[in-house]
Simulated scan of single mutants.
Amino acid sequence: MTRTPHHRKLLAASLLALPIALSPLAAPPAHALFGLGGGFGGIVYDPTNHAENLLTAARALEQINNQIAQLQNEAQMLVNQARNLASLPHSSLAELQASVQRTQALLGEAQRIAYDVGEIESAFAGQYGTAAGTGRFDAMVGNARERWQTSVAGFEDALKVQAGVVGNIDGARAEMQALVSRSQGATGALQAAQTGNQLLALQSSQIADLTAAIAASNRAEALEAARAVSAEAQARENLDRFLDYGAGYSPTTVRMFGH
């Protein structure tokens, strides 16, 4: 191939420019030497920027995880609050009220002298007081009979109340077992507190039954003691009347067995 003078000039210029292009002073940074597409005209990969982007993404992900954990904690707090505010599904109020009403009904069936202050005062002023040993003989006998019947009725009433209280024991035992079971399975503070309150109410109803039984028993004993005292007073009055011969009495001779 024949080279013309023009070709020789172009070749010489290319040889002179090649060392300048390959010189270290003209080389690009090391991180910019990796291009996509096989040349320097594609997208440039920067390792430093890539590492910083990864670190930023990791921090953002950590913040998101923290927010998720916070939301989970708040949700758990709401669940716990809901459990603490959950009401106890079991109530012993109706059964306890029925038990107390049964005892009150038995007390209300008191015969003759009931649990009434005015009635007691009236009865003791007539049948048991000073008037019990005065008046006609048949009236005193009638008062004595009334007092005896009242004492018998008092003991009968006491036995009825005691029987009713004993009958309430089975219901109280069942309610106590149910409340203890609910207390052990309570899911929150409110349920535990309500169970404790119902147990206290059950205890109060049992104390009320015990009070009623004691009151009925004491009533019967008091009526019997009053009857005994009145009977003693009436006996003394009868003896005084028997020994009092009166002003017009004069002894006479009495013949017995035909002599």
Results as ranks from 00 to 15, higher is better:
S91K: 04
P89V: 13
I20K: 10
A192L: 13
Q198F: 06
A139I: 11
E52C: 01
F242M: 13
L85P: 01
L243M: 14
R112F: 06
N197I: 09
P24L: 02
P29A: 01
D116S: 01
G154V: 03
F137S: 08
G38N: 10
Q206L: 14
L78R: 15
L36K: 09
F40W: 02
F242E: 11
Q177E: 15
R3G: 00
Q198N: 06
Q111A: 07
S230T: 04
G37Y: 07
K9Y: 03
N143I: 02
G135R: 14
R8D: 09
A233F: 06
I214V: 07
G142T: 13
S217E: 10
I68Q: 14
N168Q: 14
Q81C: 11
R8P: 00
A222H: 08
S92K: 01
Q203G: 12
V141S: 07
V152P: 02
I207W: 04
I64R: 12
P5K: 02
T253M: 15
T195M: 05
A220W: 05
G142N: 12
G42M: 13
P5H: 02
N238I: 01
P89W: 15
A57N: 13
A105L: 06
A69G: 08
T2H: 05
M140Q: 14
D157G: 13
A228F: 01
E62W: 08
L88M: 14
L223G: 03
T134N: 09
G118H: 02
P19C: 03
A98L: 13
A21S: 04
A226S: 12
Q101W: 00
G164L: 08
P24F: 01
